[in-house]
Design a protein around this nucleic acid. Structure first.
Length: 709
DNA sequence: TGGGGATTT
């Protein structure tokens, strides 16, 4: 919870005398000054706040921890669990035999909570208390309490599956059910059996589902710690509004006229730009998405307006398509939203839906991310752990993904050579897992390295990893007189968006990474810097894997050579074999291959160019298939049919039962029966229906024509 | 010619 980072919430520590870490640092005057400042901050913090609820439960918690390997702690907002649990364990000696690691789903939380704890203990950040997030490891040999993102802990467990250096792992904010935390939950379950004698796991959750987690960990104890929230009055609507926008506006104005002081936080599904007449005096109205449920804390909020909806990204494993849907929130989310009204004093939450809807229609908990995402990356990760006792299809998840989703992941991994036809991880797959990239990009890098275009592929991979959209939108009304227009940027030479991204970065490189150049072309500076960081990291990892220097330097002469980016595009084709589409015969629509076929369009923002006859390339690979107003291929690259043919052969050979480990999971076949199955087109993953077989026939005619050329 | 919630290695 963000609340534990508030400067006002600090422990009244009765055990200060036990903490004597800082004595050794008082060597120089500078250190002394810092120390004085730290002490001052600390005293200030201690004075400003009464004790946190969790400290009253110290004995209860410690008794549970001493008697059990796994303990679930349910602590509402403001209980102090994120900052205090690690310190309690430290006081009780658990940092003598190893590190106390605390995972967070978000980078900012890991950093801010670590900073907070180091202040409370009066030590320098990075010494006894540190944090580790991507690109930033602020820990040292002295570090005993380590905050880290769940993703970083997963990375660590790749090289050290037993997590030997940790005496305790605390999975914080488990109720958010982030993909990585869910995988860690499964791994912890295995680990506590293997390291029962010297390892403890604490799982903290803000809400309800403690019993479920307890059952998952063989009925481990659940300790409930009250939060420090003020009461929040819930006000339901009598009916669902026709327009949520109008309704929330009306409610907001109503609050403004009738209610006392305090800001208003409005949860909507997307960006809104309404609120015309500004109220005469100063009351803030904050319109937010679900970002305000977790990441963002706004002080001074007393009123919350909850639309009851959220925009959620979902993945359909049968079509490989993502969609962004407006869905009803869960009870847990509604609870979180309401809680935002009670942080500073008693508040009110206006729910724009009737209580019957809440009771009858809302799910108890949010559908975990693991059931809404493509799992290729996670499955590859689990396979690469190479734990003989872990079978991915039987992996013990708190909430299992659907068999379809797991099979989809296996198919994808097979098509890009990460696993073999028996579902066993290949040498290629093993290497891929070491790269902090989605499998398609990892595979692309490896292929590129074989064909002398690693440097280009590194750039493409880094550009695609950018957090935000780098390129400016193509709106016509922003014709500001700038030095340059984004239209002056390279256009991918007709080959598509990956190539354009490569060319843009190379241009930036030629300016010696000039920030003003980014601004001139309306490229997001922060995004471009991030790309540079990622590229450096990827280069290092690739060299480490290769155990020697590789050519990762950016060529300064791309303009001079008339490249068709042949090798790079081929590498992309190999890497994105699971995301391949074929153009329709008579128009520029595409049909996806390898999934249940979908007819899709190239996104209008693409720089892919048609030929003289107005036709787009026969085959493309795509970065993303997303259904918005229509299904679109986003970020595409033209590839050659010669590279595609072997992939299609592979698609046709997929035997999902073998991929799943030979044991039929859907049909109850015996293993012998499986191995008897002929490797013919009859074993295609998706049996074509009549419509599809027509498409198939048309495609064959098309291919035949192509072949004659 | 379209629209975009939030994360992370």
């Amino acid at each position: 919870m963000c609340g534990e980072g508030d400067p006002t919430q600090v422990q009244m520590d009765g055990n200060i005398g036990m903490i004597n870490w800082n004595n050794s640092h008082l060597q120089t005057q500078t250190d002394a000054i810092k120390q004085t400042t730290n002490n001052y901050l600390r005293r200030l913090a201690i004075l400003s706040m009464a004790d946190l609820p969790i400290l009253q439960f110290e004995e209860t918690i410690m008794k549970a921890v001493e008697e059990n390997t796994v303990v679930v702690i349910i602590g509402e907002t403001g209980s102090g669990k994120s900052t205090q649990l690690s310190q309690i364990l430290h006081r009780r000696g658990y940092t003598k035999s190893g590190i106390v690691g605390v995972t967070q789903p978000r980078r900012v939380a890991a950093v801010s909570v670590a900073r907070r704890v180091s202040q409370e203990l009066g030590v320098r950040l990075g010494d006894e208390v540190g944090y580790a997030i991507r690109f930033e490891d602020r820990t040292s040999e002295r570090t005993r309490i380590k905050y880290l993102t769940d993703g970083v802990l997963l990375r660590e467990s790749l090289s050290n599956p037993e997590l030997d250096e940790y005496s305790v792992v605390i999975l914080d904010e488990a109720h958010e059910r982030s993909l990585n935390t869910d995988i860690l939950l499964g791994l912890m379950k295995r680990l506590v059996e293997r390291r029962a004698s010297n390892f403890k796991v604490l799982i903290t959750s803000a809400t309800l589902d403690g019993e479920k987690v307890s059952q998952f960990f063989s009925e481990c104890p659940v300790v409930r710690v009250p939060g420090k929230l003020f009461p929040v009055e819930i006000v339901y609507s009598h009916e669902r509004p026709v327009s949520y926008l109008e309704s929330s506006l009306a409610t907001a104005l109503d609050i403004h006229m009738k209610e006392g002081e305090g800001d208003v936080l409005i949860f909507m599904t997307g960006q809104v730009r309404v609120f015309g007449p500004r109220p005469p005096n100063c009351r803030r109205f904050i319109v937010a998405t679900n970002i305000a449920e977790t990441s963002l804390t706004v002080d001074g909020v007393v009123y919350v307006i909850d639309s009851g909806y959220v925009k959620q990204r979902q993945y359909n494993p049968s079509t490989g398509m993502y969609s962004l849907d407006v869905v009803q929130i869960s009870k847990v989310q509604a609870h979180q939203r309401a809680g935002r009204a009670g942080r500073t004093r008693p508040g009110k939450c206006y729910r724009l839906y009737p209580s019957a809807v809440y009771e009858d229609e809302f799910l108890d908990v949010t559908i975990p991310e693991i059931q809404r995402s493509s799992l290729a990356g996670s499955v590859l990760y689990l396979k690469s752990l190479d734990l003989p006792d872990i079978d991915i299809l039987k992996f013990d998840f708190l909430d299992s993904p659907s068999p379809e989703s797991l099979q989809d992941a296996l198919k994808q991994l097979y098509l890009i050579d990460a696993i073999d036809e028996n579902g066993l991880i290949t040498r290629i797959g093993k290497t891929m897992a070491e790269l902090p990239l989605e499998p398609s990009l990892s595979r692309t890098l490896m292929e590129a390295n074989e064909h002398g275009c690693l440097s280009q592929a590194l750039t493409v991979a880094a550009m695609l990893s950018a957090e935000t959209t780098l390129l400016p939108g193509r709106s016509k009304n922003t014709e500001k007189k700038r030095k340059h227009d984004y239209l002056d940027l390279p256009d991918g030479s007709g080959w598509g968006d990956h190539i354009q991204l490569l060319q843009i970065y190379e241009c930036w490189h030629q300016t010696n990474y000039d920030i003003d150049w980014c601004k001139d072309y309306q490229l997001q500076v922060r995004g471009m810097k991030f790309v540079k960081d990622v590229r450096r990291q990827l280069s290092q990892i690739m060299q480490k894997i290769a155990k020697g220097p590789l050519d990762v330097q950016i060529s300064r002469r791309w303009k001079e050579s008339q490249q068709d980016y042949h090798n790079l595009r081929r590498a992309l084709c190999v890497g994105y074999a699971n995301q391949l589409a074929e153009r329709m015969v008579y128009h520029n629509g595409y049909r996806t291959l390898g999934f249940k076929p979908q007819v899709v369009q190239v996104h209008p923002s693409s720089v892919l160019k048609p030929d003289d006859e107005g036709k787009l390339p026969d085959y493309v690979v795509y970065q993303e298939l997303i259904a918005t107003s229509r299904p679109y291929l986003r970020t595409v690259c033209a590839v050659n049919i010669a590279w595609v043919t072997p992939i299609l052969d592979k698609v046709n050979k997929i035997n999902i039962n073998k991929l799943s480990g030979g044991i039929g999971r859907i049909e109850e076949h015996t293993e012998e029966n499986m191995s008897d199955l002929p490797k013919t087109d009859n074993v295609v993953a998706a049996v074509p229906d009549d419509h599809e077989s027509k498409i198939q026939a048309a495609r064959e005619r098309f291919l035949a024509r192509k072949g004659k050329k």
